[in-house]
């Protein structure tokens, strides 16, 4: 696989990601989370190994910027969505749906934890870059 071109790599990558997705879905349907884990971890290792074997450049500063922006946007939207969902679920739990209260609190706490970790890393990288 050493010296593989980018097209071949992309085809293999898409195939592997599809299989991982399929196995995760299967694992979730069957409530077999071990199956999901044993698929994801080797899948990531295989993808990483394949990428190292590509003769062309597949990751550079522009792709890093794209990934950074996408990750930032995803974090922002998902945290807001999680926090809001948490509040809605907790509110609904006081109006007759008491069984969803724990899920609501879990969402709200998770949103807070993500924001805390984000603040921590912002502080850390700020220190590294001269703050």
């Amino acid at each position: 696989m050493i010296g593989m071109d980018k097209t071949k790599y992309n085809q293999l990558k898409n195939g592997i990601v599809f299989v991982i997705g399929l196995m995760m879905a299967f694992g979730a349907i069957r409530h077999n989370y071990v199956l999901s884990m044993v698929t994801v971890v080797p899948g990531i290792v295989v993808l990483y190994t394949l990428r190292k074997g590509v003769s062309e450049v597949v990751h550079d500063e522009r792709t890093a910027v794209i990934q950074h922006k996408a990750a930032s946007r995803t974090l922002g939207y998902m945290t807001a969505l999680m926090g809001l969902s948490g509040l809605v679920l907790v509110e609904m739990s006081f109006r007759g749906y008491s069984e969803i209260r724990d899920v609501g609190y879990a969402f709200a706490y998770m949103a807070n934890i993500i924001l805390g970790v984000y603040a921590l890393f912002t502080w850390y990288y700020g220190k590294q870059m001269g703050d």
């Binding site: 062309e56 450049v57 597949v58 550079d60 500063e61 522009r62 792709t63 910027v65």
Partner: peptide
């Protein structure tokens, strides 16, 4: 792109003014 160690898409993006290196 090969000479500079970046992707062809990066060169294209710089040339078309979509990305500042």
């Amino acid at each position: 792109a090969q000479e500079l160690g970046v992707t062809r898409q990066t060169i294209h993006a710089v040339e078309s003014g979509k990305y500042n290196p």
